[in-house]
């Protein structure tokens, strides 16, 4: 009795361009590819002497981090600065007051500062949706991670990293390993990989770390690392979120490492030219061995570099999408 709601109703403008970036789910292959192509061009630029472009000159980007994250915050900040934007960083603790009140009040305060873009990280799934639905028109919202729901810029920097090392997605078998249940990164990766046409997407985890009906998203489910890593081209490790762990989910970190930690022996099961990704920060000896993390097949540092480019790409695309929306609205008013 209610029309199904699609995130694209919120994140795309009337011309189908990105005006917010909330989730990779439901975005077209063309749009995801456009993000990667745009990021590629910024990546070339970052190797030059002058790293700045004036795409966001005169715009104000507010980084609203309700959850601590040094590295995501700093890559967003750097991305915004390389686009010549003014940047406002706000670390807002959610512990002091009721979450909902804080979010609404913060939003209203920041709107009064006339920011053009909010980059939002929040511990509640749907927080970025909530903000995108409630901001004044022409303010772009970029999701920098909401609860367990989505972390689309992380997923797209992973896609960029894969594409730069492997080229086409079609022949690839990709395994996502670890705490899928609590992972917004895994959810966004799965949607992006499926849309970009990856040959096979696998998840590998014990049942306690797998969300209900994850197979409905077009992935193959493995609970055994040796089976799951066979013939894999890309291994995407996830951080074991220690702070979210209920003790009953796993007997111990050491047992997890023994069964699901990526060691050189386990990596040997995957294809010889397979690559390893990890969103960081790494728990060495919990989900990944130091020799693998620092080894020749690890792309972990490339991911950080690519992260800046992807964030520049989605920020510039969203600002442009908002401008188009504004022009369309004006024409609508004049007509």
């Amino acid at each position: 009795m209610f029309e199904p709601i699609d995130a694209n109703q919120i994140q795309l403008n009337s011309d189908g361009q990105l005006k917010h970036f909330l989730t990779t789910e439901g975005l077209s292959r063309a749009l995801l590819t456009e993000i990667l192509d745009t990021a590629d061009s910024f990546l070339d630029m970052s190797e030059q002497q002058v790293k700045k472009v004036p795409l966001l000159r005169g715009k104000t980007v507010a980084n609203l981090f309700f959850e601590n994250s040094t590295r995501t915050l700093s890559t967003f900040e750097l991305a915004a600065k390389r686009l010549s934007a003014d940047v406002l960083n706000l670390n807002i603790s959610t512990s002091s007051t009721a979450k909902g009140e804080t979010l609404r009040d913060t939003l209203m305060t920041l709107e009064a500062m006339h920011a053009d873009m909010f980059v939002v990280r929040h511990s509640d799934s749907g927080a970025a949706h909530f903000i995108a639905k409630h901001v004044t028109p022409n303010v772009a919202v970029i999701n920098a991670g909401d609860g367990r729901h989505a972390h689309p810029t992380q997923a797209m920097l992973d896609m960029l990293t894969i594409r730069r090392h492997k080229g086409d997605f079609a022949p690839l078998t990709v395994a996502i390993v670890g705490d899928i249940l609590h992972s917004r990164v895994a959810r966004s990766q799965i949607h992006a990989l499926r849309t970009l046409g990856a040959g096979e997407v696998r998840v590998i985890a014990p049942k306690t770390l797998l969300p209900r009906h994850i197979e409905a998203f077009g992935v193959k489910v493995f609970t055994d690392m040796a089976e799951g890593l066979k013939d894999v081209d890309v291994v995407m490790m996830l951080r074991l979120q220690k702070e979210r762990m209920n003790s009953a989910l796993l007997p111990s970190e050491s047992e997890f490492y023994k069964l699901y930690g990526l060691t050189e022996e386990k990596l040997a099961i995957a294809k010889p030219d397979s690559v390893v990704l990890h969103p960081g920060p790494i728990n060495r000896g919990v989900e990944i061995a130091t020799s693998v993390a620092d080894g020749p097949r690890s792309l972990i540092l490339n991911q950080v570099t690519n992260g800046i480019a992807v964030r520049m790409a989605v920020m510039s695309m969203a600002v442009s999408g908002q401008m188009v929306e504004k022009q369309n609205a004006r024409q609508g008013d004049n007509a």
Binding site: R148, P211, R212
Partner: peptide, 15 residues
């Protein structure tokens, strides 16, 4: 409710 939609939205499920 803990099911596909819950998994998609990343909300905590009630089985």
């Amino acid at each position: 409710h803990e099911d596909t939609t819950c998994t998609r939205l990343g909300l905590n499920g009630i089985p």
